[in-house]
């Protein structure tokens, strides 16, 4: 479903600020795989995600999605295959538009946008059914401006908008990091439900090791642009946070640098 072949990316090459963001990444995901990526700040997690989304071009290597070489596809073309939820809840929705209008935009990801018809009764009904699955009452507020929703509600809506059109790949970029703990729990639960229901191939970046262990069937730990540790479904089952920290120490010979990662246990 997703294949990365020998990806390299260096920022500011040939300057004193040169930084190797991705160093020979080769990975493969099968349909339905759900990988969580952890690592300290600057490990290359976000770069990798941007590489998948098409916001960044690799220096070398190529990206295959659903049997197609998409390396040179521009972001908006690639977005046909990709659903994405950002860290900032404000980024995934248009605040001045109503809930149903936002849903309409996400529906346009897979189908052409009509010049002659708007939101029909049928699509509205469909939206309502999808919103019901969130169980936060948004189905009764189709005509509310999204700007009036809380951060958690907006993120839940973003998540739904990214998933209900069944993308080939779902990218989650620390999508709970900006929320308070109770809202985090809600979003994690929704993520689990939505991904399971549609068997989405998912890549999730997170700072929280517990989250990374709890969700998904695979785990990658990144540092300095490389994947330094991987766990498959079996290994992941009895993986604990101390295991991960030890693993990091073993490979790198140093403690995990990010305080944030430690604080989150």
């Amino acid at each position: 479903m997703l294949q990365l072949n020998n990806i390299y990316k260096t920022f500011y090459p040939n300057t004193p600020d040169e930084r190797r963001a991705l160093n020979n990444i080769s990975q493969k995901l099968s349909p339905g795989d759900f990988v969580t990526i952890i690592g300290s700040n600057g490990a290359g997690k976000s770069t990798l995600l941007n590489m998948l989304a098409g916001t960044l071009l690799p220096d070398e290597g190529n990206v295959w999605i659903d049997g197609k070489d998409v390396t040179s596809w521009p972001e908006e073309k690639r977005a046909k295959l990709i659903g994405r939820v950002f860290q900032n809840p404000l980024m995934g929705t248009a605040p001045g538009m109503t809930i149903e209008e936002n849903m309409m935009i996400s529906l346009g990801r897979t189908q052409n946008r009509s010049l002659f018809s708007g939101i029909t009764k049928k699509t509205r009904h469909q939206f309502r059914e999808h919103l019901q699955t969130l169980e936060i009452g948004l189905e009764n507020r189709l005509n509310s401006k999204v700007g009036l929703l809380s951060g958690g509600e907006r993120q839940a809506l973003s998540l739904l908008m990214a998933t209900f059109t069944e993308p080939k790949i779902l990218l989650l970029d620390e999508h709970t990091a900006a929320l308070d703990p109770s809202k985090q729990e809600l979003i994690i639960k929704l993520t689990k439900d939505l991904v399971e229901k549609q068997q989405l191939t998912t890549v999730m970046v997170t700072h929280q090791m517990e989250q990374a262990i709890e969700l998904g069937n695979r785990l990658w730990m990144m540092d300095e642009g490389s994947i330094i540790f991987e766990a498959n479904e079996e290994q992941k089952q009895d993986l604990t946070v101390p295991d991960l920290l030890n693993e990091f120490e073993k490979v790198r010979g140093k403690r995990m640098t990010s305080d944030k990662a430690l604080l989150m246990k």
Partner: peptide, 20 residues
Amino acid sequence: TEAGITLRATGDNQSMVKSF
């Protein structure tokens, strides 16, 4: 219309519309 909604959303949150 769908195109009109997209036009309005483009002015509202361009990066979101692009991501779809």
